[in-house]
Design a protein around this nucleic acid. Structure first.
Length: 209
DNA sequence: ATCCCGAGGG
DNA sequence: CCCTCTGGAT
C-alpha cells in the first residue's frame, strides 16, 4: 500500500467515525463566531457553550461589546479558561472591528492577524467556519496527531500546516480539524495514546509516541 | 503533577 | 526564546 493510499484509508475512517459536518458555536453574527472561537482556546466546548448564550444576549452589537467595561465582559466569560486575557482581547478586538472595519470581520488571514487575541489558529478556523475558505487549522491536537500518524514532522504549527496541505486532498482540509480534535480528546490523547481502541492504528506510523 | 480546540508580552 | 494566564480533567 502506498503512503497516499494509507492517508486515504485514514481519511475514510475519520469520516466514518466522526462525520463530515462540523457544528459551529452558537452565534447570530460573524463577529460573535470570532469571539466564540477566541473563547475556545485552552477550554472545552462545554465551558464555551455555557458562557455564550447569556454573553451574546447581553451584547447584541459589536459596538456595545467594544464599549463595555472589561469587568463586565469578564463576568460573562468566567466559565472559560484564561478569561481575563480573553476579556481584555475581546474588548480591544471589537474596538478594532468598529474603528477599522465598520463593525464587519475581515476575510483575509493578514487582516485577521492584526486583531487583538487572534492568532493563526483562530484566524484559520474563522475563515473556514464563517466563509468556507479551505485551510488547515493546526491546534494542539492536529499538531500532535499529524506527527504521530507520520503525516508531518515540522516543529511549528505553521510548518505542519504546510505539510498537511501537501498530503491531504483539499476537500478534507476543513474537516480534518474537528475530526482530529475529537480523536485527540477521546483516543489519541496527549499523555498516552489509547492505540488498542484506535480505529486508525492499522495505518498509523506512531511517530512521537 | 500535567495538559488543554493559544496568544500576548518580556 | 521564555513566561503567564484560567479552571477543569485525568
Amino acid at each position: 500500500m502506498t503512503e497516499q493510499e494509507k492517508v486515504q484509508k485514514i481519511l475514510d475512517k475519520l469520516d466514518e467515525t466522526y462525520g463530515v459536518e462540523k457544528q459551529n458555536f452558537y452565534h447570530r453574527e460573524p463577529w460573535q463566531l470570532l469571539l466564540a472561537i477566541m473563547l475556545s482556546a485552552q477550554s472545552t466546548d462545554k465551558q464555551v457553550d455555557e458562557a455564550i448564550p447569556a454573553f451574546f444576549d447581553r451584547f447584541t452589537a459589536v459596538e456595545a461589546m467594544a464599549e463595555a467595561p472589561v469587568e463586565e465582559i469578564e463576568h460573562y466569560i468566567q466559565s472559560v479558561g484564561l478569561y481575563k486575557n480573553k476579556a481584555k482581547n475581546i474588548k480591544k478586538c471589537c474596538g478594532q472591528l468598529v474603528e477599522q472595519y465598520g463593525g464587519a470581520v475581515p476575510d483575509t488571514m493578514g487582516e485577521l492577524l492584526k486583531l487583538a487575541g487572534v492568532g493563526r489558529k483562530t484566524a484559520n478556523l474563522f475563515l473556514s467556519d464563517a466563509f468556507g475558505i479551505p485551510g488547515v487549522t493546526v491546534d494542539t491536537h492536529v499538531f500532535r496527531i499529524s506527527r504521530r500518524l507520520g503525516w508531518a514532522e515540522g516543529k511549528t504549527p505553521e510548518a505542519v500546516e504546510k505539510e498537511l496541505k501537501e498530503c491531504l486532498p483539499e476537500e478534507h482540509w476543513i474537516r480534518i480539524n474537528f475530526q482530529l480534535i475529537y480523536h485527540g480528546r477521546a483516543v489519541c490523547t496527549a499523555r498516552k495514546a489509547r492505540c488498542a481502541q484506535c480505529p486508525l492504528e492499522e495505518w498509523c506510523a506512531k511517530k512521537g509516541v
